[in-house]
Design a protein around this nucleic acid. Sequence first.
DNA 1: CTAATCCTGACGAAATAAGTCGGAATTGCC
DNA 2: GGCAATTCCGACTTATTTCGTCAGGATTAG
Lengths: 177, 177
Amino acid sequence: MRTNVPNSGALHFSTRGEYGVRLMVELARHYGTGPVSLSEMAEHESLPRPYLEQLVVSLREAGLVLSTRGARGGYELTRPPVAIRMSEVITALEGPIAPMICASDDPHHTEQCQRAGFCNVEQLWQRVRDAIVSALDSMTLEELAEPRLGHPAHPEAALMAVQPLLERPIKEPVAQP
Amino acid sequence: MRTNVPNSGALHFSTRGEYGVRLMVELARHYGTGPVSLSEMAEHESLPRPYLEQLVVSLREAGLVLSTRGARGGYELTRPPVAIRMSEVITALEGPIAPMICASDDPHHTEQCQRAGFCNVEQLWQRVRDAIVSALDSMTLEELAEPRLGHPAHPEAALMAVQPLLERPIKEPVAQP
DNA sequence: CTAATCCTGACGAAATAAGTCGGAATTGCC
DNA sequence: GGCAATTCCGACTTATTTCGTCAGGATTAG
């Protein structure tokens, strides 16, 4: 019964994608209220802070977040959540969408399959890629950040979503290097 | 600028998917002409035969291929290529489509996220999954197998799946024994 | 000054993917 | 019957990637 198929299924996102998206959602909920520190988010999301420290580098390099160094520093979004497509977030965290080397989102990373011309399997991977990309393009951070409306399964959910972590003065972020 | 993003990009298929699909395409091209041995396919596709031996187990268990043991044995499709959706093939080889544990194609493998109700990030993963599944559902082996080799034993199958291919010179990849 | 915070690079453990190996069982063909 | 081609099976090894940890330096508010 125990076959050799990967036990967790095909086409996995890594934890970079998972944690990174949760981090971005956290930032979206605090958009406009100044920087939020990694420690706060790590604790609130129960994620290892040293690991987040790594992930956030990619987000900063992609221009999605601004960092403020020093005491009372932290991170904040560079744009309103509605203006951030999930494809940008995922690409920053996990690299180009590329279910196969011959079908990368980023042409620069796409290898020419030496079998092109023989087979048209390439089409399959490209269709999958396009499907993923347009699914990610169709959602923004805002949609993920807003607390659920209607009948909340857990009433405290709305509280957690709306409640600001800490009241503190807004400070100017440092310029990007 | 060595960042930590996975060097080959997000949402990769493994070689199981890649090799397995190529193997199925090979079988599709010989559909109706009796079993094809793994050695033949391994050589023709330049793939390690012992590894294919493993993959094909999954395909057999999924009911996609039929094996004939003994000399002159080999594998053949259980159904005409036009009747085999790529989603079946991929699922057999790589397991359920599950970009995240809370968004598996197979409900039995889906874990309930303890954050459900707090966040709606779940929706993101589910949309991605659905996009992938429907892309895979929309293609059949027949489309990938063109051009066919040998004499089609079921010409009506080819007629059912008329698919305009891109214009390009058709090279003959192999000589017919 | 000091505490909080980001930043950087290197390191290590664990999991997964990829491939190998040896041999047993089955079958066509001479 | 004997041989060669083939599938079948389970265990094993190796390579790569993921998932973190760690130690310390740089920056800044108070």
